[in-house]
């Protein structure tokens, strides 16, 4: 685990305050720690409000953590500025959920490559640049002739998302933050984009943080899974262990809800619908206590810590305390 650890997140916390006066706290990310190793694809899985996107933005230096550290190759990234930050962006890149909002509608798609060469790859001359861009587009299975010179609205979502992937990959990043990058794409093109991530990892040893709400996509592409609920990690570890032997009641319920073609649903056991969660960020116990079918008294008061219950499989639930 220690050798080749690329990114280490330590006790990361991000608190948002709503309103200046009489606002309340949202602990979007609350004391989260994990590592990503070289060449590893890690799925960060959670529903809306789990804090998964916030973690992605924190790692991309788009937000500043309230507390805790993010170490990339043993270097704290929070103080990065100017040239150091540019160097960081050569190693760590991101692709976001909505391809159309990720590009400026006024510029041709070439612009997303231009700004990279202007700011991060200044030494590359024009000729070399064109070769690099065309290769990058071919790498994501696009024909440069059909893409370059077009405006974003002339491309489909799938094509545009590939362009943005090509943009990130042109830098040969060591870590890619992929935030819900296929959730707005059609099923028929989705898997192609996922395969690209896998191929790039195989070819260049790139690590990927794959942020998703879709469990089967996470299972398909990743080596490790991190399951989050309301800003905290509830379970993480080896993808097969987490999915085939889910320990946390939340993970179990999530897996039950996946409309997987292999299982038949019985519409008898009703899943507990969400309830009022007033003060969820203020309670001292487990945040899942509002919905947990197996809660006991201690869950209200004490927050369970992540425990390694078997090798490479952690869970934060009082049921597994020894």
């Amino acid at each position: 685990m220690k050798n080749g650890s690329m990114l280490r997140v330590e006790n990361l916390t991000k608190v948002f305050n709503t309103g200046f006066i009489k606002g309340f706290e949202i602990r979007a990310v609350d004391d989260v720690s994990f590592t990503i190793n070289k060449g590893e694809i890690v799925s960060l899985i959670g529903e809306s409000g789990s804090g998964k996107t916030t973690i992605g933005k924190l790692i991309l230096h788009l937000l500043t953590p309230t507390s805790g550290r993010i170490l990339f190759k043993n270097r704290d990234i929070s103080k990065l500025k100017g040239a150091d930050l540019k160097a960081y962006y050569q190693d760590v890149q991101g692709v976001f959920q909505d391809p159309f909002s990720s590009v400026n509608p006024l510029h041709r798609v070439d612009h997303v490559f231009d700004i990279i060469f202007e700011n991060l790859l200044k030494d590359v001359d024009e000729k070399e640049k064109n070769v690099l861009v065309e290769d990058a587009l071919r790498n994501v299975k696009l024909n440069p002739k059909n893409i370059l010179g077009k405006y974003p609205h002339q491309l489909s979502g799938g094509q545009l998302q590939r362009v943005l992937l090509a943009r990130a990959l042109i830098l040969r990043p060591q870590l890619l933050i992929a935030d819900e990058i296929v959730s707005m794409l059609d099923a028929s093109v989705r898997i192609g984009v996922l395969n690209l991530l896998g191929e790039f990892r195989d070819k260049y040893g790139m690590s990927v943080l794959f942020i998703t709400h879709d469990l089967s996509l996470g299972y398909y592409i990743s080596d490790k899974a991190i399951i989050m609920y309301r800003g905290r990690i509830v379970e993480m570890g080896d993808i097969k262990k987490v999915f085939h032997n889910p320990l946390h009641p939340y993970t179990q319920m999530l897996l039950q809800s996946v409309p997987d073609l292999n299982v038949k649903w019985e519409f008898k056991k009703r899943i507990e619908p969400e309830k009022e969660e007033k003060g969820i960020y203020a309670i001292s116990g487990c945040r899942y206590v509002f919905r947990c079918p197996r809660k006991v008294e201690i869950c209200q008061k004490d927050r369970p810590e992540l425990l390694e219950v078997e090798k490479n499989h952690w869970v934060a639930c009082h049921m597994y305390k020894r």
Binding site: A187, S188, V189, R190, I191, G192, L194, N195, G198, L215, S216, L217, Y219, Y220, I221, I239, K240, F243, L255, V258, D260, L261, N262
Partner: peptide
């Protein structure tokens, strides 16, 4: 369509 139990390492799906 990805299904639980199908992993990139083992079986490559095609779009």
């Amino acid at each position: 369509l990805p299904r639980l139990g199908i992993n990139y390492e083992k079986e490559r799906l095609q779009g």
